[in-house]
Amino acid sequence: MIPVFDGHNDFLQRMVDAGPARDSLWLKGDGTGHLDLPRMREGGLAGGFFAIWTPSPASEDDSLAAMLKGNPPFALPLPAEVSNADSLPRALAQAGQLMAMERTGTLAICRSAADIHAAMAAGKIAAILHIEGAEPIANMDALHVWHAMGLRSLGPVWSRPTRYGHGVPFAFPGSPDTGDGLTDAGKDLVRECNQLRIMLDLSHLNEKGFDDIAVLSDAPLVASHSCAHAVAPSTRNLTDRQLQVIAESKGLVGLNYAVGFLHPDGRRDPMHGFEVILRHLDHLLKFLGEDGVALGSDYDGAQMPEDLSDASKVQNIVQAMLDHGYGEELTTKIAHRNWIGVLERTWGG
């Protein structure tokens, strides 16, 4: 198998929800969700970004769930901002779950590219602590605390506002050019992340915020789990102009497997085969080149295609790339080497 390093999963909240059964959920699985240790090993999923995320209040979650069951056109207003007081306990609980997974001896929280290489060589899952939506970070002092805890990747927003910027709303068809750019606090956050060498994740950020980070940041621009707007005009997908800006920074985009972001008309019907996925990959490669495209599944956070229904199926996309004519070298780059490369350029060594 060609190992796969993945740009985004939402497994940690499942660990929180499992309570006393959390170790069993990770080590054995429970037959639900998309990801656990046995299925990662079966599919050759060697590591990835484990996201900390705070859900919106239940009423707004219900509205989002109802929208996601339907088909386009749709446009959902941005949820209200979640306070630091509400988000911080949830975030700490999820971080604690990742540390508990590390204590089982099967996973290593990686703070450098060398750590990733070492974990993969030892047969451990190479995990990066990521925050999706910076609500748990009250100020720059708190950012330093999170960095000391192992934070190495940060998305300033999910699809709602924070004190740092504005997320893009869920809409199809639609443009990511919605709302204002980064706040002054958001610009300070970018500068401090650059100083700490924390990767900034552009997925979920609106276009003006994207442009602000492109101007301010001295690191490669990265969207961990996004698709091509030219193929599927979701607000969550990246326009050709944005892809060109990422390419000029020697950055990277991780392809999101979510059906609603892949499908050219935004439908959330079951998806079979890899024709649409390969259209997105071909388009991303056209703009980003062979070193700028990777994978970012969104496992445990979205509806998956039937042939990528959980982590055990990851080699299906590897085989699809080989069958499409990418060749072993390019397929290996997309599968894991490009993620490690952009992290080396971002983190240093």
Rank of each mutant, 00 (worst) to 15 (best):
Q97W: 08
A171V: 01
N84Q: 04
P169L: 10
L88S: 11
L255S: 12
S226E: 01
L295A: 11
P173W: 07
M149E: 13
A95N: 02
E248H: 07
E290I: 00
Q315I: 00
G260K: 13
L37Y: 15
G186E: 07
G19I: 10
E60M: 10
F50H: 06
A228H: 12
L330Q: 09
P161L: 05
V276Q: 10
D86R: 13
H117Y: 05
Y257Q: 06
Q303C: 00
V293E: 02
L68E: 14
R337H: 07
A122N: 04
V82K: 14
D269Y: 05
I340S: 04
Q319R: 15
L196K: 07
R39E: 10
E329A: 10
F261G: 03
P38Q: 11
M304T: 08
T162I: 06
R236P: 12
V168P: 03
A65L: 13
H272R: 15
R103W: 01
G254W: 00
P3Y: 06
P264E: 04
K313P: 00
A121K: 14
A91H: 05
A18P: 05
N71L: 08
D218S: 02
A93G: 12
D282K: 12
P38K: 13
A91T: 01
R345S: 06
F274G: 04
P72N: 09
R111S: 07
C110L: 13
A108N: 04
Y164W: 02
A91E: 07
K69F: 01
A51P: 03
D180K: 15
P55L: 10
M1I: 02
G260T: 08
D30H: 13
F74A: 04
S234K: 02
R160L: 13
P79I: 10
K187S: 04
G7R: 12
M199A: 15
L88H: 13
A113F: 01
T331D: 01
G43S: 07
A320R: 10
C110A: 06
D6R: 06
Q195P: 00
G341M: 08
L288H: 04
N194A: 11
P79A: 13
G266Y: 09
R268N: 13
E132S: 06
R39P: 03
R111V: 08
P57R: 09
L182G: 05
H280C: 08
L200Y: 05
E344D: 03
V318M: 02
M149P: 01
E42R: 15
M120V: 15
A108Y: 02
G48K: 11
D184Q: 11
C227I: 05
L295S: 10
K250L: 01
Q244E: 14
R279A: 01
D265Q: 14
G29S: 09
L238D: 01
A148M: 05
Q195H: 14
T332E: 11
F261L: 14
C193N: 09
A66R: 14
N237E: 00
G150Y: 07
D240N: 09
N256A: 11
E306K: 15
Y299L: 14
V259A: 04
A223D: 09
R345L: 03
L68W: 13
D265I: 13
